[in-house]
């Protein structure tokens, strides 16, 4: 609403009552300001041209897409959640890289391409071994593992048997099971005779344990420790249970 002279004066006196004492001068001043307001009129052609220009810019105005309002706490929770997920992703990777070295089986292909006898202890599952014959069920990860990627095996079944002394006992130094399983000790060669087997162990990491054999280990011979996963019947049946890991070991007199 256009303020009149009286309204403006009322305004001014309300803001500064002392000005009321000079009412005549203030009134004259405001009156002058009102009457001397410059008369400004824009060019009609310019006004019409600009209007047409603006309305032609239809493409500029796109419908406003309103974002749904998020609760305030979500702005704080989102970065925390992201950081948590990142930590959960990185910690397992870190622990894997920090895992102790665990010798594992070497794939058959490597054995064939690296025939050095010194490495024979850790090269296992020969092409014609019983495990290979039953190989359809052998853990793929075990078959493809190498020393360098032993850490990758951390989530699968593992077994480690060091060099043994002649006798009727094989010391299994460590075993990591993802399901109930048992260890079978057998000769490598034509006979592939089973010399002994452990009891069925529950899943998890096993403390060192001994497997008693029916026949003594002979110095200079090669043997094999094979980890069989029980098929659920609770019986140690090498024909129906699945081989999940195997490694060879030698026997020597210390």
């Amino acid at each position: 609403m256009k303020p009149t002279l009286e309204q403006l004066l009322t305004d001014i006196y309300a803001l500064d009552a002392s000005l009321r004492e000079q009412d005549a001068e203030v009134r004259s001043l405001v009156q002058n300001l009102l009457t001397e307001k410059p008369v400004v009129a824009a060019d009609a052609a310019f006004r019409a041209r600009l209007r047409a220009e603006l309305l032609a810019e239809r493409t500029v105005v796109a419908p406003k897409i309103k974002q749904p309002a998020l609760p305030w706490w979500l702005y704080y929770a989102a970065p925390i959640g992201f950081a948590t997920v990142l930590i959960l992703m990185l910690v397992p990777e870190y622990t894997k890289t920090q895992a102790p070295f665990v010798p594992t089986a070497v794939p058959t292909t490597i054995e064939q391409s690296a025939p050095e006898a010194d490495e024979a202890l850790f090269m296992d599952v020969p092409v014609e071994s019983p495990a290979a014959k039953r190989g359809a069920a052998v853990s793929t990860e075990s078959e493809q593992s190498t020393f360098g990627v032993a850490a990758d095996m951390a989530q699968s079944d593992l077994l480690y048997v060091g060099t043994q002394e002649p006798g009727q006992v094989v010391l299994v130094e460590s075993a990591l099971l993802t399901a109930p399983a048992y260890v079978v000790i057998q000769e490598i060669g034509q006979s592939e005779a089973v010399l002994g087997m452990s009891d069925i162990m529950l899943l998890g990491e096993q403390l060192p344990f001994a497997v008693t054999l029916q026949t003594s280990l002979l110095s200079g011979s090669m043997y094999e420790a094979v980890l069989y996963q029980d098929d659920g019947d609770g019986l140690r049946a090498t024909t129906s249970d699945v081989v999940v890991f195997a490694m060879s070991f030698s026997v020597s007199v210390r």
């Binding site: 603006l54 309305l55 105005v61 796109a62």
Partner: peptide, 12 residues
Amino acid sequence: QSGETDAFGVLY
């Protein structure tokens, strides 16, 4: 804002 550019003419 909802796409009716003609409404801007009234404001103009």
